[in-house]
Structure formats: structure tokens, C-alpha cells
């Protein structure tokens, strides 16, 4: 990641990194981590940092393509997001934001400890950062597995089956409730207008896409008033009808999940890579490489981790909060 290749010296003199141009050829007198084409460790550090920022700029543009995917659909079809964001649990999203922000703090502290050369503390803070990343991925696992269970896969693997099943059951529930209501308040005139409404709901099922399995709908129309509320707990429903978005389903509902999985998936891959970087940095720290004169790898790894945090700062409100 950093451009600095350093020779494997057994006697390390990290902390005396101020090599001078005059004694460069001598082979000693400057840090073993200083590459030949740099005059000073400072120059090497600044060059590495510049390279890292250039890399981060390409990362921004990489995510930019997916943010464009989001923006175009948000502009053309806001209903898609109004419907879809009900499937995302903003409680988990907020928890993940906290986890990632905290890991950013521990990463910044790890950079500071590397600058001070306190080996045990570097490893401690890197380990905490790693564990926070693991916690983030754990929460992602909980969220993803719920969606996979409901058949909400990205792209062509998306299945409307469970959504439509749940919609049918919910519609049936609403109808039962209205019927029960109607029988209770029979003498009132308003009922006469309400019953046809309920039937009208039944007559127009949510336009199902091709290849639908027949819905397991309870067929107790006659005894509606007695057990009207119990219908919702039909066994075998992968998706709880009460978790459905309140509004009608837009025609291209699956696109929302493609956007969701693309953005959070690419971000999740970055978190995994960042965790790998933490492990690598921990190994380097255990070898006692970091000190006031040489902490570039920790600093650059930190920059990467903060960028991952930065992207999540935008992803969280865009996907979970904004309707």
C-alpha cells in the first residue's frame, strides 16, 4: 500500500529517521526504512501520503459510479425509495454508524501511538479497530441474512414470491378487519359504503410478476368475524405482513435492493480489506517497526480506514433515513 519498501535489517534504529543527503551513500546514518530515492524520511513520508490521497481520490470516484446509480433512480423514481427503505432497519444502521465512528477514533489513536513508538498500545488500538470492523460485518451479516431469508436478493436473483405472499395475507387481513367491523356496526348506515370498498380491495391484487406460486390463503370467509385477527400468523410466511411498507409496491421494486446491495456490498468489501490491513499492521507493529521516524504504514492504513468510515457516513442517511 505504501510505496516504501524497506530492507529487512535486524538491528533497527527506528526513531532516528533523519537521514541527510550528504551521508546517503554511506549505508548507515539514516533509517533502515528509508528508500534510496528519497533524501529524507520526511520526504518519503510526504510522498507516501500524497500517493495515498491519490488512491483515495480514485476510491471516491469508484463509489461515485454507484452513487450515480442511486441518484439517477432517486431522481426518476422516488417512490422506489419511499417503499424500499422500510425493509432496512435503521436501528441496525445507526448502531453500525456508531461502531464505525468509534473504530475511526481507535484508528486515529493507533496512528498517534505509532508516532510515539509505543508498541503494545499500537497493537491494542489496532486490535480494537479490527474488532470494530468485525462487529460491523457481524451486524451486516444479520441484516443481509434477514433479506436473503425473505428472498430479497440483488439483481436477477430477486424473488417477489415472499413479498407478494405477505401482501396477499395483509390484504386478506384488512378485508377481514373491515368485515368484522361491518358486522359489529351493522345498523349504521356507513357500513353500506364500507363493505364494497373491502371487496374492491380483494378484486385488485397487487400486479404479480410472472412465475408466482399459488398463495396459501386461509379460506375461512364465512367465519371472518370470529377469528379475523388470527389470519396474519399463517405458518410458512417468510416475510411478516406487518413488516411490509405501508404504501403500494412500485413496479420495479427489485431495483432498490440492487442499489442497496451494490452500495453496501462494495462498502463491506472495503471494510474486509481494511480489517486485513489492520492484521498486517499488527504484524508489523509486533516486529517493533514503528516509531517517531517511521509510522507511514499505520498512517496510510488509517487514512484508508477513515475513508471507509466517510463513505458509510453518506451511505447510512441515503439508504436508511431519507425517504
Amino acid at each position: 500500500m505504501s510505496g516504501d519498501k524497506q530492507p529487512q535489517d535486524s538491528n533497527q534504529q527506528a526513531g532516528h529517521g533523519d537521514g541527510h543527503g550528504a551521508e546517503h551513500g554511506a549505508g548507515h546514518g539514516h533509517s533502515p526504512y528509508q528508500a534510496h530515492h528519497f533524501d529524507t524520511m520526511r520526504q518519503q513520508f510526504e510522498a507516501g501520503k500524497l500517493g495515498m490521497w491519490l488512491f483515495l481520490a480514485t476510491e471516491v470516484l469508484l463509489f461515485g459510479g454507484l452513487f450515480c446509480f442511486y441518484t439517477i433512480y432517486k431522481a426518476n423514481d422516488p417512490e422506489l425509495f419511499k417503499w424500499g427503505h422500510h425493509f432496512l432497519d435503521k436501528r441496525w444502521g445507526a448502531t453500525n454508524t456508531m461502531v464505525l465512528l468509534f473504530s475511526s477514533l481507535t484508528m486515529a489513536l493507533a496512528v498517534r501511538e505509532a508516532q510515539l513508538g509505543r508498541k503494545k498500545r499500537i497493537i491494542f488500538f489496532l486490535a480494537v479497530t479490527f474488532l470494530c470492523g468485525a462487529g460491523f460485518m457481524g451486524i451486516k451479516y444479520v441484516e443481509y441474512s434477514k433479506k436473503f431469508h425473505e428472498g430479497l436478493f440483488p439483481g436477477k436473483y430477486f424473488s417477489y414470491e415472499n413479498v407478494v405472499d405477505a401482501e396477499e395475507v395483509r390484504m386478506h387481513q384488512q378485508e377481514q378487519q373491515k368485515l368484522a367491523h361491518a358486522e359489529l356496526d351493522l345498523p349504521q348506515a356507513s357500513v353500506v359504503t364500507e363493505v364494497p370498498k373491502a371487496q374492491g380491495l380483494v378484486l385488485q391484487p397487487a400486479a404479480p410478476p410472472a412465475g408466482l406460486a399459488p398463495v396459501t390463503q386461509p379460506d375461512d370467509h364465512g367465519t371472518a368475524s370470529s377469528d379475523g385477527d388470527d389470519v396474519g400468523h399463517a405458518p410458512g410466511l417468510a416475510l411478516d405482513p406487518s413488516h411490509l411498507p405501508p404504501g403500494p409496491r412500485p413496479a420495479n421494486a427489485h431495483v432498490f435492493f440492487s442499489i442497496y446491495f451494490c452500495l453496501t456490498g462494495l462498502h463491506g468489501i472495503h471494510v474486509l480489506i481494511g480489517m486485513g490491513v489492520m492484521l498486517w499492521l499488527m504484524v508489523l507493529a509486533m516486529q517493533g517497526r514503528f516509531g517517531p521516524g517511521y509510522f507511514t504504514p499505520v498512517d496510510l492504513g488509517g487514512l484508508y480506514w477513515h475513508l471507509v468510515d466517510l463513505i458509510w457516513i453518506y451511505l447510512f442517511p441515503l439508504l436508511y433515513l431519507v425517504e
Binding site: W53, L56, A57, V60
Partner: peptide, 24 residues
């Protein structure tokens, strides 16, 4: 940091803004 690093970063955000703006 050196201001040039900030120029790179803000520049990438500016280009991202151009990208999104023209797409919109």
C-alpha cells in the same frame, strides 16, 4: 497536512459532483 492533499481530495469530490450533476 500539505494543502495539495486537500486539493486532491476536494478535487475528487468536485469531479464526483460534476459527474452526478451532468447525469442528473
Amino acid at each position: 497536512d500539505r494543502p495539495f492533499n486537500a486539493v486532491i481530495f476536494v478535487g475528487s469530490l468536485f469531479l464526483l459532483g460534476l459527474f452526478l450533476g451532468f447525469a442528473l
